[in-house]
């Protein structure tokens, strides 16, 4: 098994064992997955369009937030505890380490995003009394595009957490939280009454996610052991 998979497996295992983090994530998914549905539903006539809208932006937002939450555990925590220094002495390359961690965040993040999608569907169905199923483009968006966005988010945040000092990382945390709130508002504006999720929209979102992943993967060439070591907390 490649070392990337070894790192990813360890991260997933560790996240599952982090009860507080998992409980926070589940609570967040549960609260937003259930309580947003009636609010959105009451403002729209077409319930099918409602499902698509929720599947497009709410699941995406929740997935990205999960990525953010788990990234702090996977990248920053290792730097704070100093364990990263030992890892940097292993034959693991920085890229393998970065990819492994991104994968380790993406897998549980995507599972929780799928769970939130199911929750939204069940809540929506219960609220309307009809069986609500997302359209094919939205299904593709949930299954493929959202994990890609989780990976992009995790990769970018993880990269910056690696290269920034601890104080800068605290500031970054606030910026990211506000960024996610802004993103949610922005997408909601974008997905107004006229908006419908088509294959073109999904393809554009997928392209954006892939572009972000590629840019971040390229940025990892600027990672260095020295940079990580000199930004460790003393």
């Amino acid at each position: 098994m490649s070392r990337i998979m070894v790192v990813a497996e360890k991260e997933v295992r560790q996240l599952i064992k982090s009860r507080n983090v998992m409980l926070s994530a589940l609570l967040f998914v549960g609260v937003f997955g259930i309580f947003t549905v009636p609010a959105v539903l009451s403002g729209m006539g077409d319930t099918g369009a409602m499902m698509d809208t929720l599947g497009f932006y709410l699941v995406l937002t929740l997935g990205v937030f999960m990525g953010y939450l788990f990234t702090a555990q996977v990248f920053l925590r290792e730097k704070q505890s100093g364990v990263i220094e030992t890892l940097l002495c292993t034959p693991l390359s920085l890229r393998e380490l970065w990819f492994g961690k991104v994968l380790g965040v993406t897998i549980p993040g995507a599972i929780l995003a799928y769970f939130s999608a199911i929750l939204i569907m069940v809540t929506g169905s219960a609220f309307t009394g009809q069986t609500l199923v997302p359209s094919l483009p939205v299904l593709f968006h949930i299954i493929v595009v959202i994990p890609a966005f989780i990976a992009a988010t995790s990769g970018l945040i993880g990269f910056t957490q690696f290269i920034l000092g601890m104080r800068e990382n605290q500031i970054l945390n606030f910026v990211i939280i506000f960024g996610i709130i802004f993103l949610t508002t922005f997408i909601r504006e974008l997905t107004g009454p006229e908006f419908s999720v088509t294959w073109t929209v999904v393809a554009a979102a997928f392209g954006l996610a892939l572009l972000l992943i590629l840019v971040t993967a390229w940025l990892t060439r600027f990672l260095s052991r020295e940079r990580i070591i000199t930004t460790l907390s003393e």
């Binding site: 070392r3 360890k10 064992k17 982090s18 100093g82 364990v83 890892l87 002495c89 292993t90």
Partner: peptide
């Protein structure tokens, strides 16, 4: 190093197995 390079949330065996695979 001064930090032992170990993960608190993994067992002793899991910690060693992780590094053994790396």
């Amino acid at each position: 190093m001064e930090n032992n390079g170990l993960y608190d949330r993994l067992t002793a065996r899991e910690n060693l197995e992780y590094y053994a695979r790396l």
